[in-house]
Design a protein around this nucleic acid. Structure first.
Lengths: 212, 212
DNA sequence: CCATGTGAAGTGATTCACAGCC
DNA sequence: GGCTGTGAATCACTTCACATGG
């Protein structure tokens, strides 16, 4: 829908989230127009980096002026594909799964969790945030009925691959994997790994090397 | 302590977390020796990438054989600086802060949250996971007393910078910033940003481009 | 003989520097 | 005059290919 040329660096996509966050905070502060220089400072990146990142998706600025904050937020949202709602399911209703189900921010950002699945009979029937936990057998019908494209995977590591298989089989297009295990899926299915410790490890490493 | 040469790519550090995760799962399965080929497959990276990453920190393998899983886990842990306990504080006891305080996995991994701070008088005195919420004014003494080096920042975005200033002032060396805002700190203080939406945005983007 | 460790080659991303435009 | 958009130059990371060693 949005890509001007062929390949967009993964790093660019990651930075777009940052720009969006900073621009939203600026908008809340009433800033209407911003140029790449100050925006770069606020995002802690290089100014031409921002300009280059943006031109992968179009020309959003006005020479001699800068970017309109509201329009740029819209343009980036459209570029990322988050200018509309996404239906999601969650598989694995443990502590983390429950926490995510109860967290309303996902819905507020357009990611609606419309199904919660588990194969444990003791969990089936429980309710979180108005959503009843359902047997994994019924995953496929639910995904088809509600045009679900994203699955949150929150099982223990040893069950991650099996859950991933279920999601793929159900026709999911992307998996947000919170389980501490790699999973293997067909190339056309996208996987993102969420690891709560990875940032903590980076901090530990960076602090450690400083002292040496 | 651990760096053989001067500069280690940030990407290498991020991959070490992945290797560690995969190696721990292998160890649980009883695998004792692994060579870079199969390890690379399991981590979904290139084999020489793994070998090069490891040589930044030392020579951990045996030619013709491979790596001892247990020893490699230890070596990577030591390289990352997570072979010992880290005391941490948390500032901003909102929903997310409470969730993190109640989550025992951090302690299990060696990151002990030994203080919870907030400036809201209604929150001070509340208790989570056996930890009493304390006024931010007392942050500095606590950090000094317990040799705390890492701070979890879980305030709303508009209070993130002020909280960051408190942490810096208290002598913190690294900040794990969960607030959806950039923060600015002296160069010697490390910051890692945790953004729950960034992976979701990447998925949305990748799924969207597929369809075009 | 097999797998590590590593310089050299290749690839990809970032920054520079300036032409183009408002 | 000021700021965007962009080819060219630089820098950083990854992969190759093989010498080294158990």
């Amino acid at each position: 829908m949005s890509t001007k040329s062929d390949h967009i660096p993964r790093a660019t996509i990651e930075r777009l989230s940052v720009y969006l966050q900073v621009l939203e905070n600026m908008q809340r502060q009433g800033i209407e127009v911003i140029s790449s220089g100050p925006l770069a400072k606020a995002c802690d990146v290089n100014a031409s980096q921002i300009r280059k990142d943006l031109t992968y998706f179009g020309e959003f600025g006005v020479r001699g002026v800068g970017y309109n904050v509201r329009e740029l937020i819209q343009s980036i949202s459209r570029s990322l594909g988050i200018d509309h709602q996404w239906n999601c399911v969650l598989i694995g209703v443990g502590n983390l799964g429950k926490a995510l189900l109860s967290h309303r921010e996902f819905g507020r950002r357009g990611f609606n969790i419309v199904g919660a699945f588990d194969c444990d009979p003791f969990k089936i029937g429980e309710e979180f945030n108005g959503l009843e936990v359902v047997c994994t057998r019924r995953l496929k019908e639910r995904v088809a009925d509600l045009n679900v494209r994203i699955g949150f995977l929150t099982t223990p590591p040893e069950r991650a691959q099996r859950a991933a298989n279920h999601l793929v089989e159900a026709g999911i297009k992307g998996i947000l994997n919170y389980a501490p295990a790699r999973i293997f899926v067909p190339a056309e299915v996208h996987v993102e790994y969420v690891d709560f410790f990875h940032h903590l490890y980076s901090l530990a490493f960076n602090i450690s090397v400083d002292k040496t």
